[in-house]
């Protein structure tokens, strides 16, 4: 029975981590799928969101939930400006230009945060109602992890409904599949891009705040987690919400389990599997083949 409990607690921990990955990465997946834009600065928006949220709590004494909302709104607004002023100029540029531009942005974000707040890690103190353990009947587990799982699931369901059931969701799906066709149907692609970009960055901010407790929050965050966010998106398939969700959970659980049972070779395993997967299915595990 000990073994069973162990497996379940690993699963829960992994799923909780996966939910954070999902919340951060989903925006990246949709913007890459929709605009074909290689946005290496996506983690930067997560970091800025995380900082806003943590600082609002630590320095202004704001409650956790309110801080999360503020983080989402501010980052979404700021990213709209970025998208209109800068990103939009590079939609037709080469990948190399997009890569350089977004690496440049990441550097500027890192430097700005270091200058403004300092290089040290910002601790996130959870409100008391999220601390401690919760008894699930068969197992007692960290309350926060369970809450993360619940929040992630709700977000997933919300996004899925939004994607499948609303006009805008249908427009986004159409544009991911065939941009030219969507345009000829009279969908306003420019506006769609801006909205999706803002919303995706806002989600990243949310993920930055929600994950700060165990991913840590310091100025190097966007570079430290760059590869893992990209892996999630590539494995899930560009522009596929459900794909990113499954990929996040898989990678979250695998990473968590490997760190626990095989602390040495974990990363090698994830890199290796990603390489094999992309060679086998370049469009990702859940992406549509062309």
């Amino acid at each position: 029975m000990i073994f069973g409990i162990d497996v379940i607690s690993t699963l829960l921990g992994g799923v909780a981590a996966g939910m954070v990955l999902f919340i951060v990465s989903v925006g990246l997946s949709v913007t890459m799928g929709l605009m074909g834009f290689v946005n290496l600065a996506h983690g930067g928006f997560a970091m800025i969101g995380g900082y806003l949220i943590v600082l609002a709590m630590n320095r202004l004494g704001m409650p956790f939930v309110a801080a999360l909302a503020i983080g989402f709104v501010v980052v979404a607004a700021v990213s709209t400006i970025f998208e209109r002023l800068l990103y939009s100029r590079l939609y037709r540029a080469t990948e190399l230009d997009q890569v350089l531009f977004t690496i440049g942005l990441v550097f500027m974000m890192i430097a700005s945060v270091t200058l403004a707040v300092g290089p040290e890690t910002q601790p996130l103190t959870l409100p008391t109602w999220l601390q401690g353990q919760i008894n699930l009947g068969f197992i007692s587990y960290r309350t926060y992890s369970i809450v993360l799982i619940a929040v992630g699931t709700v977000i997933m369901l919300g996004l899925w409904l939004g994607f499948e059931r609303t006009r805008m969701g249908a427009q986004i799906r159409a544009a991911v599949d065939n941009r030219r066709m969507a345009e000829s149907l009279g969908i306003n692609i420019t506006r769609l891009f801006t909205l999706v970009f803002a919303f995706g960055s806002g989600m990243a901010a949310l993920g930055g705040g929600l994950g700060a407790e165990f991913l840590g929050l310091d100025p190097q965050y966007p570079l430290k987690y760059l590869v893992i966010f990209l892996i999630v998106v590539a494995v899930g398939g560009l522009g596929r919400i459900t794909g990113v969700f499954y990929a996040s959970l898989i990678i979250g659980v695998v990473d968590f389990a490997l760190k626990k049972y095989l602390p040495q070779g974990g990363t090698v395993f994830i890199y290796g599997m990603t390489i094999l997967l992309l060679l086998w299915r370049p469009q990702g595990l859940f992406g549509k083949s062309t």
Binding site: F101, G104, L105, F107, M109, A111, L115
Partner: peptide
């Protein structure tokens, strides 16, 4: 780092 980032952005644009 700030200057380098800015430089990259300017080069790309």
């Amino acid at each position: 780092q700030l200057g380098l980032g800015l430089l990259l952005v300017v080069i790309a644009l």
